[in-house]
Design a protein around this nucleic acid. Sequence first.
DNA 1: GCGCCTTGTGTGACCGGTCACATTCATGCG
DNA 2: CGCATGAATGTGACCGGTCACACAAGGCGC
Lengths: 345, 345
Amino acid sequence: MNVTGHTRRPASIRDVATAAGVSYQTVSRVINGHPSVRPSTRERVLAAIDELGFRRNATALALASGRSRAVTVLTANTTHYGYASILQGIEEAARAASYAVGIGVLESADDAAVAAEVQRAADAGGGLIVIAYDPAGVRALGAVPAGLPVVGVVETPASPPAGESPWVWADDREAAYQATRHLLALGHETVHYVAIPSSTRRTSARTSGWRQALKEAGAPEPRPVQGSWGPAGGHAAGLKLARDPSVTAILCGNDDLALGVLRALHEAGRPVPGEVSVAGFDDAPHSAFLTPSLTTVRLDFTGLGRAAFGLLHRALEESAPVAPHPVSVPELVVRESSGPPPAGH
Amino acid sequence: MNVTGHTRRPASIRDVATAAGVSYQTVSRVINGHPSVRPSTRERVLAAIDELGFRRNATALALASGRSRAVTVLTANTTHYGYASILQGIEEAARAASYAVGIGVLESADDAAVAAEVQRAADAGGGLIVIAYDPAGVRALGAVPAGLPVVGVVETPASPPAGESPWVWADDREAAYQATRHLLALGHETVHYVAIPSSTRRTSARTSGWRQALKEAGAPEPRPVQGSWGPAGGHAAGLKLARDPSVTAILCGNDDLALGVLRALHEAGRPVPGEVSVAGFDDAPHSAFLTPSLTTVRLDFTGLGRAAFGLLHRALEESAPVAPHPVSVPELVVRESSGPPPAGH
DNA sequence: GCGCCTTGTGTGACCGGTCACATTCATGCG
DNA sequence: CGCATGAATGTGACCGGTCACACAAGGCGC
């Protein structure tokens, strides 16, 4: 071990080589587990490595070999629970594979800004994971130059892509379908929907799952209310819906929106679940502790993150395991915020 | 512009050089804005750069120059609001300075695990920012090898460090002090405290601010209740406190804990703020929308993150601005969850 | 006993930049 | 007019690894 106090330049393979009395190439072979090295030689090299505290320089490795064992995650807003959990899952899997994780935040959905961010990520080397649940993310996914390995974390696609695709997703559509059916089964005539900003112009997967459940039940399909991501958007949407006495069940695009809706209903004097039932989406950690506690659909975000990394890992290295990270199916969690409609409905 | 479809090796400075009819060194000079390049030459080089779509290879730059324009953030749990916001602030400032941001998650506070994570971060090159609000973070900060530039985001230190220190902090102590005074001013006899896990064995800054306010008011000092980070911990602590009828005011180490406490009080049939007042810490986005909405202290987490980056930037580059990122002082936000104690107290 | 293949090891070039120094040419000044 | 000076540019080495290839020694078949 290096015991001298002052910082010195870290040992390189040539330092190790002279210390062990071999050439730098032999050291390289030992590091990389090349078979044809005499055991006694390997021994000496390993001893020298240990003594000098040698660590392979990641930068030099990346430059010389071309592979960089790094992933950059492009995402809007790391503050949001779902995004943060996906990131957590990616990091976890990356750590296990000893990959470095970089992050880039898409602050604006503006084309130029997105392109700049993608460029930065590309400069970092290695692979790319884009969280494409929102317009900025979708645009970023589209702006990735061909040839750069990339995996997108996307909404449930309308039709399952043929063959291998560089995407992972949780089954949002199924989740929305389940939540809507739950509310309908309680006896509600229909279910209103407060949407998260759609990632594309087209209808989001969550919206289409909701719609499908309504259609199957022969329930009327009210116009979805457009919310933002945060509770404030839910609050605004909730105030609007609270004014309509026919509204008895509301599905929200995520738990934060649901929180705002709950608050708005409270302010409007409409008891939950007595008069109105509310269901969220994501099962954020606080949702179980709200009053009333929130009925919601749990999504396996960290699993999604792990799967995204797994797919990218496979794209970057032939030798990586093929499908190591299953994503669990969405699970409806029934709590206090949903119940039968009031009598007379 | 490169219009050929298939991916080719990105252009290097030598490619640019031949295209412009100069040497690679001249290209390097142009890139780095060296003054002694004839304007006409610079012109030609810039044209070649543009035509070939040249971008400077970050890896090669890092290897050759030693500086890497990268920061790695070491943190526990990116899911927690405060941590995520700090990360967001760091990323924002880093982006502005065109630094790459890497993250490493401290999943366990185990010494070996922490050391491994610090090593990984060191291997990534560049500077390090450690979020040291919890035991894992504090241990990581301690394990950083000398000579590696590092900034810690820490709790308010007991005494202001002399001279320049590699730490940034929000004034937690002052914040806790303010919140406690607010509750005392409402007429409560004393204020109970549900603590977040302390970063060290010693008393945390938040605890000491609370204690100081009690002492100044001559209020009795109840034993702090140890919570965890999440709402579940707050819930457990809240159930305990709810059983004690003398408890009329509770300060919580963060908003998630407060949420759990609110829920526990609700389950125990103790109205808030009618019988018990609750205050949180952090002003998470959902706190304003709870019922009752939560009185809390807002901390400038993103500002903290920006300041941390600013300090590190300065440590890495002589030329960086000295103190560009002020951290705003904590601000008490009074909402529905705090009020006067019930009559008879 | 010779050639041939395999095993173990070393040498030189290279990845894409930067840095230190050399070189050329025009200019200013004594 | 000669020489020092500085602007503009080029050359070679280097950062710390990897890769392709050369080469010596030993075992084996014929």
